[in-house]
Write a protein that binds this DNA or RNA. Structure first.
Lengths: 221, 221
DNA sequence: CGACGCCTTGACCCCAGTCAAGTGTGGTGG
DNA sequence: CCACCACACTTGACTGGGGTCAAGGCGTCG
């Protein structure tokens, strides 16, 4: 019985106090009734989907300030604590303005994930993954990676071996340095993002249809 | 100037009349100011993200009754008409209850997409893609695929050649039949979904932590 | 100490990307 | 009407990237 609720003291109203949970703790299960949404106060959360055949898809990681559990009705994924310890704030649905902000945050995270996973080569995926986390953890050169390699693999649609090899490759190319398995330093951010093919949004807003006619047929691979 | 707005007559209030748009029409561009959200009344829409290097990620397809353009602030993707013609209903942000429903629909679509794209083999991706569309177009054996193969490829992270080969493979295995390039019949739904590895949610809700202890380490590949 | 979890590395091989050619269809102009 | 081209889809041959299997290094725990 690993439910976070055990450790939570309920309060009247929509907002609950921040509560602690340890590594491996399950905050909610896929298919549970979705009564709450959450915001990460500290630590890292992963959301996972288990297929009937046992295969697993990690659908995302949530860092400080990010939200999860915004499904309505029933949770489609499970949420588990990745870091040694995490602190999360629990919300009831209710305050519309607040709810909408939460939903939008979730949407943004998911959109990013698709752009990440859709990448072609393994090296590009891992590079983009690191670049993405760097941004989301507010840009320090030191990137915390509390999740095991298997989580990264199941997130990017790769195997642990390949993920490991790509980290080694990035080290060999002097783009990153690893202090420990779960602490990475970005040495050459520019080349890393080039590898990642970061879409730095150079497409101008507004009436860009002149640049990209609607019937364009060929895109680079 | 392919903007849908040209064809739209504005009305006071939040809801606009349903408007028509032809194949290839751009409803909004990536990086445009996000003033509206949309619901598909007929036809098919695709949302795409263009990287700076010209590569393209199709982030989703929207069928009748589904919503798109729920980004807040700035559209992260472009939305284009895929089918010969489409009809979309435009909404302003405002009615909180309605807004929340729209956001939730979008969220569900994106979550599904991640589960689709995360699959390992090409055959599994295409099979899951077809199974998914069958569900979303309300279960007829006849599946409309108005989008070109290139769109499917850019959606699943494959190449057109591979997508084409997988369709042929599915035909050879007698799982599907193709009347034309863009109309597919599912012959053997069961085996198709088996290939897709459809997660038919056999994991019981509630306190399932006994079945899936938090520290489980090995998952099938 | 051994057992186990997690990560890494190597060897091998197959799946899917690449390059190329062929087919069928629709549009355009002579 | 046909000639020609553009486009979308398919298929084949080849190759390389990444999956698979196996072994080994650490760190932690009992």
């Amino acid at each position: 019985m690993n439910y976070l609720e055990n450790a939570i003291t309920c309060m009247k109203g929509n907002v609950f106090p921040i509560s602690r949970a340890q590594k491996g703790a399950v905050i909610y299960h896929q298919n549970d009734l979705a009564r709450f949404r959450f915001e990460v106060a500290a630590g890292v959360i992963r959301t996972t989907y288990l297929f009937a055949d046992g295969r697993r898809q990690v659908t995302g990681f949530c860092f400080e300030g990010e939200v999860f559990g915004t499904d309505q009705g029933i949770y489609k994924t499970s949420a588990e604590v990745v870091s040694e310890t995490a602190r999360v704030r629990r919300f009831c649905w209710g305050d519309s303005a607040e709810d909408e902000r939460a939903l939008n945050k979730s949407l943004g995270l998911l959109e990013n994930s698709i752009l990440l996973i859709g990448r072609r080569t393994a090296l590009s995926r891992v590079a983009a993954f690191l670049a993405d986390i760097r941004l989301r953890t507010k840009g320090s050169q030191w990137i915390p990676l509390p999740m095991p390699r298997a989580d990264i693999a199941d997130y990017l649609g790769l195997t642990v071996e390949t993920v490991s090899r790509m980290f080694s490759e990035l080290r060999r190319k002097r783009l990153i340095a690893q202090l420990e398995d779960h602490l990475v330093q970005i040495i050459d951010q520019e080349r890393l993002e080039a590898l990642a093919g970061v879409g730095t949004d150079e497409i101008p807003p507004g009436h860009a249809s002149d640049n990209f006619p609607p019937h364009r047929t060929h895109y680079p691979r």
